Amino acid sequence: MGSAQTQGELWGARAREWADLQEVSFGPLYDAALNAAKAATGSAVLDVGCGAGLALKMAQARGAKVTGLDAAAGLVEIARRRCPGGDIRLGECEELPFADNSFDVTTGFNSFQYATDPVHALSEAKRVTKPNGYVVVAVWGAADQCELAPYLAAVGKLLPPPPPGAPGPFALSAPGALEALVGKAGLTPGAIASVITTMRFPDEATTVRGLLASGVAERAIRNSGEDAVRKGVSDAVRPSRKGDGSYEFKNEWRFLLSRA
């Protein structure tokens, strides 16, 4: 059994806030990854864990034929509206409902690591990607290059106790970790690239509302209560407040370009 039901409930709980307040900041990451994978007119692109569909919208603007899959019904609805003509489905990343060798490019932006079995999820990505096609896996960069690291730490303290040995949010940013993961799935790892994204909010209330929109934050809310999570997030990010009351967070992301 995969993780779709659990992750779908968590990431879909505040779908509109995610789409409007968080996802917009990932544009530079999506653009760089699509460039590296040569997504263009005529390409068939699949985004696994497509969220609210911004990466697919950008691929579609390049002339690609786009397909997306996500576990959260609310996010899928937004993605469908954003990508008219795209094939956006609700589903499980470990059981992709697509034929072998269907796509030129398969992407997973901060998604494969949420699978119950990430290696199996990546094996599915390999299966549906054409031979020698690209599979792109994006994860957080180094913790010391992520200004949201205090937020992640604060939320982490309010989550249920993890199983012994459970990886943290930056586990795949360690040297060689991402290459080893995709290698276990039979993919051929290529180059790793880093991209800095910037998340901006006009005030504290919007900052907290935006940062509560992730599935991880929702899990903390269900474990510790919304008041506790709001306070934890507010306290953690307050040092980033600018003189005009706005907030800005620069974060490193890394993506690995591998071959099927």
Rank of each mutant, 00 (worst) to 15 (best):
M1H: 12
G2V: 01
T6W: 12
T6N: 02
Q7D: 03
E9G: 03
D20N: 10
E23D: 13
D31N: 03
A32T: 07
L34M: 09
N35M: 08
K38M: 06
T41A: 01
S43H: 09
V45P: 07
D47S: 08
V48Q: 05
G49F: 01
A52L: 04
A61F: 00
K65G: 00
V66M: 02
A71S: 14
A72Q: 00
G74H: 00
R82V: 00
R82E: 11
C83A: 11
I88T: 05
L90Q: 02
L90H: 03
P97V: 10
F98W: 06
F103N: 00
D117F: 02
V119M: 10
V119D: 01
A121F: 13
A121N: 12
L122I: 08
K126P: 12
N132Y: 14
G133W: 13
V135H: 02
V137S: 15
V137A: 14
A143K: 15
A143E: 15
D144H: 10
E147I: 15
Y151W: 15
Y151D: 08
L152G: 09
L152Q: 14
A154S: 12
K157N: 15
L159P: 11
P160Y: 07
P167L: 02
G168Q: 10
P169V: 06
G183T: 12
L187R: 01
T188A: 06
T188E: 01
T188P: 01
P189H: 06
P189G: 06
A191T: 14
A193E: 07
I196V: 06
T198R: 13
F201P: 07
D203F: 10
T206H: 04
T207S: 14
L211R: 04
L212I: 05
S214T: 15
E218K: 12
R219H: 12
R222A: 05
S224N: 13
G225W: 11
E226P: 09
A228T: 07
K231R: 15
V233N: 11
S234T: 15
A236E: 11
S240V: 05
R241I: 08
E248I: 09
E248N: 07
E248W: 05
E248R: 13
L256V: 09
S258V: 03
R259E: 13
R259A: 13
